[in-house]
Nucleic acid binder design. Structure first.
Length: 386
DNA sequence: AAGACGGGGCC
DNA sequence: GGCCCAGTCTT
């Protein structure tokens, strides 16, 4: 549920309310928006606030920095000017344009949502938070953002920037991951947006403040429109906010990998549509245990696919990539084969091969590949992919 | 309520 | 090279 201006819930704790006894939300919003008028960045998705473009940019911006998104956004709107264009595309093309952006379920859900808008909304992109929330890949934050920026609904938009800004303004000392803290901060966001003259402008300004001034590090308190009101600033706790719970440890994953060359073409399989790198292409890949002998695993993988293992494998090329919670270690060999491998009839559960094929270098650019696989292919055969 | 899910930039 | 950042969906 997006926070709304409903009467106070009787179960609402008093914590957030008490902090607001000494703060004036109308004044704060005016100060914030005045600052924003001078600081607003010119970003491509701000040129035309259609629901389609706002939605596309917000999905790309989930868990992703603005600087990463700009180029991807430009390529998407150039190729898919309307939601109908996106809905009519092949998933492969969508994923190939998404390649490198990460969190690939976003790309698959983007395509599904476009199809749903065409099928269920007559191709007219919804602009109410309630209708947006039913689209795949659109959660609380994205629904509120599109409803506010493109639909002019008075809803609070709460992303990580807003959480950081509010946790400092209010000097929140509880961990921001806790449901109670999130709810409390959302109530504060609603108090502010309800007092704003222009809710959309206020919401945009909140996020811009978090992106440009109230940043995770190197905070620019001197340039902040809220420097006199900020409770963390007066308490000297700015750099200690927001409070976060300890992150989980990273796990290691060893992967046996074979790049098969079939007369100059590279053989790729498609991963199953769920889980890590879902729906993307990859060379023959299998998870290994710590003590496994990579040559033995390579041998098995060849036999499973009906190609003859070489008498002697080329020694492993090691490609390592670090993800947020995993360290991937690909141990790669190259094999020449006169015939295309056939995907195993009983795919290993780690991989879940859906289909497969051989590709030349140009065709490689038309399917979705993770950055990790691009690095593997570049190391094995084709520097063009770097 | 907790875990899975990428990738890059900053220090 | 370690640390930090940031929404949605699934279980």
């Amino acid at each position: 549920m997006v926070p709304t201006a409903k009467p106070a819930d009787p179960k609402t704790p008093v914590d957030a309310a008490s902090a607001w006894d000494d703060l004036d939300p109308g004044l704060l919003s005016n100060q914030l928006v005045a600052w924003f008028q001078g600081a607003r960045r010119d970003l491509p998705w701000r040129h035309e606030l259609s629901a389609y473009r706002v939605w596309l940019s917000e999905v790309m911006l989930q868990q992703t920095q603005v600087s990463r998104v700009v180029g991807y956004f430009e390529r998407f709107v150039a190729r898919f000017p309307t939601v109908q264009d996106l809905a009519a595309a092949d998933e492969d093309e969508v994923l190939s344009l998404w390649s490198g952006l990460g969190y690939y379920s976003r790309g698959r859900n983007l395509h599904k949502a476009a199809k749903a808008v065409v099928a269920n909304h007559g191709g007219v992109f919804p602009t109410t938070a309630e209708a947006l929330r039913t689209l795949p890949g659109v959660g609380e934050y994205t629904a509120a953002a599109v409803a506010s920026f493109a639909g002019q609904q008075r809803v609070a938009v709460v992303d990580g920037n807003v959480v950081r800004v509010l946790s400092r303004l209010l000097n929140e000392d509880r961990a921001v991951q806790l449901p109670e803290t999130k709810a409390s901060l959302a109530r504060s966001a609603t108090i502010l947006v309800d007092a704003a003259a222009d809710a959309a402008l206020h919401n945009e300004a909140m996020m811009e403040l978090g992106a440009l001034v109230c940043t995770p590090r190197r905070v620019d308190c001197a340039g902040c429109p809220w420097r006199t009101a900020c409770l963390a600033r007066s308490a000297g706790t700015v750099s200690a906010r927001p409070v976060k719970l300890k992150a989980r440890a990273r796990t290691h994953l060893r992967l046996a990998c074979i790049v098969v060359d079939v007369g100059g073409l590279v053989y790729l399989e498609r991963r199953g549509s769920t889980g890590l790198f879902g729906g993307l292409g990859e060379p023959i890949t299998a998870a290994m245990g710590d003590g496994d002998d990579v040559e033995a695993v390579w041998h098995t993988l060849c036999v499973e696919r009906g190609i003859s293992p070489p008498l002697r494998f080329t020694s492993p090329i090691v490609v390592e990539r670090t993800l947020t919670h995993r360290e991937l270690r690909f141990e790669v060999t190259m094999v020449q084969s006169s015939s295309a491998p056939s995907p195993p009839s009983a795919p290993s559960p780690q991989i879940g091969v859906a289909d497969a094929g051989v590709f030349d270098d140009d065709a490689l650019l038309t399917i979705g590949l993770s950055s990790a696989v691009r690095a593997v292919l570049a190391a094995a055969r084709s520097p063009r992919l770097l």
